[in-house]
Amino acid sequence: MSGKNAFNRIEVRLAGEGGQGMILAGVILAEAAAIYDGKNIVQTQTYGPEARGGSSKAEVIISDGEIDYPEVINADFLVAMSQEACDKYASNLKKDGLLIVDSEKVRRVPLTNAIKLPITRMAVEATGKSITANVVSLGILVGLTNLVSREAIQKAIIARAPKGTEEVNQKALDRGLTAVEGLLSVKDKA
């Protein structure tokens, strides 16, 4: 085993502003991996003292083995939903890591090979609700990386969706998945 993969851990960071639902997205991703795909996970988060606004960040470590250190050391994947989040965490990505940004919220992207999509606008177009942007971003992330199975992410989203919003969330997930269908598939890290 090479040093990098010695721990067989994949590190994901989902970051944005408070209220964008990125911590919930992290929980859903973690549930998809742990409950439906049977992997080990550790999910952590940080947020400011504000209930809304401020910055918030979720981290998910996914592994087939034991996970000791519970936080991201060098992220394999970063979803940045705000300029501040991108500025703060992009430099921590692994050399061959993947950056996904909401292109309308993040104007300055430090990496040339980042995936830039208008995630929040896509959410509004698909569901009429900007709050579903977090689910769209999960669709994009999973569509590109196969980090968790599509079945797992779908089940995890529906299980977390408040009653009556299952259809809306399904639409948001589909929107994310289809948006990246045409894009070059990123090396399967899982």
Binding site: G19, I23, L24, V27, K163
Partner: peptide
Amino acid sequence: MRAGPGGLE
């Protein structure tokens, strides 16, 4: 625990 907000955001 399955259905609830889980104390999130």
